[in-house]
Design a protein around this nucleic acid. Sequence first.
DNA 1: TGAAATGTTGGGGCG
DNA 2: ACGCCCCAACATTTC
Length: 479
Amino acid sequence: MPRSLLWFRQDLRVIDNSALDAAVNQGNAIIAVYILDEENLRALGGASRWWLHHSLAALQADISGLGGTLHLFHGNSQSILSELCAANDLSTVHLSRCYEPDAAALEQRVYKVLQPAVDVHRYCGTLLFEPESIVKDDNSPYKVFTPFYKSCLRRPSPGRAPVPPDAGNWFNDTLPGSCTLEELNLLPVAPDWAGGLRDTWQPGGQGAHHKLQHFLAEAVADYKTDRDIPAIDGTSQVSPHLHFGEISPRVIWHQVEQAVQQNPDIQEGATAYLRELVWRDFAYYLLHHWPTLPTDPFRPEFAGFPWQDDEQLRKVWSKGQTGYPLVDAGMRQLWHTGWMHNRVRMVVASFLVKHCLQHWKHGEAWFWDTLVDADQANNTASWQWAAGCGADAAPYFRIFNPTLQSQKFDAKGDYIRQYVPELAALPAKYIHEPGKAPAQVLKDAGVELGVNYPFPVVEHKMARERALAAHKAMPKNSG
DNA sequence: TGAAATGTTGGGGCG
DNA sequence: ACGCCCCAACATTTC
């Protein structure tokens, strides 16, 4: 029986996977492979590696349930694919597109190496809309979210029902050069720091659909307001599942639409949620059209921004020891769970970039290493957005006051108490700014500033004015 | 998907 | 009754 190759990449799912469906429908024996490629692609962060291990295990189980095998490889995608095609006399490769510059370039090289002997079929599996398909009237790409969003909404719904694939013919013999999941060495061993991740997440398609169902049943109705409250479980938390392609955004879109049909009361929350899903597409869209986004500011004048370089300050930030309780809570949630609430991400990013004047690339790198949903498109677009140099970015002078944000969005201090236990006994009135608490209140709460909780590493008013001055001093014509 | 400074308005206390 | 002041509440502008 002729054989085809199904190359899994960031589409680690069996439901609504066009590449998989095409391979099944083609009728050939399917050689399903995943390649951990650390030569062509940016090295994964620690949290992503942990997730990937479990995601691959889940995909192996799902494919096994279809009667198939997922073959794992470690090395250069280009040479591994070439050898597989030659050794197995393959006529077809099915794959889902990736949009990161490195991944897209790799895809092009593979295409050129394999064609014309092998037909390479690419499918849209990661996004709601292909980036080439959304353009302005003059055929140039959008730079602002809202018109992009409206353009998306004018199109037919991208929703797709979650139909499981038909059983295919799978190639299950051992392939030379393949390895076991354990041999990919994705899990931390010395030390094993993944306990918080294990307690928090269930990687894989099943975990993804559970998260979505839970969100649609419990939280979507109040999403519009609750999504800003980090102490509330008001978001779907599907971002890591989406990043690895364990669930398709088109299926999410469909499920949300279905939920609205069944209960029109959730319309407002559902619309707000789908808008966020379009933001995700927008990040990929920007990266596709501006592939230098991971390194260069979208607004070129920011190339001359007078960043400071203070490694100690960055360390304090990354460990959640800034003396600003909301910032510290966020950074510790990240360290412990591999995830941070979006409202808090905006606050900690603004703090690093504006209060501390550290280049956004440092924050991007830390998030890349520690987030289970680390995603080049979203990470770079969001950091540039926070730093004021991105597409449709917050104006630079929009400097979050971390104390006010805390009072506004964690009014009772519940989120802070969860992740900054040394402040847990402080009353809500003082928990956002322990330095303002009377000595007796601090004493009663067991808080010793400078001893078991730090004084603020920078003073807000001074830092704000310094950031505004730095922005003003930026050469306007550089880049 | 801000915050702070500045400006405006209107109700109430008070002489 | 009236002007004056205070200031909270809201609106505008500035960063």
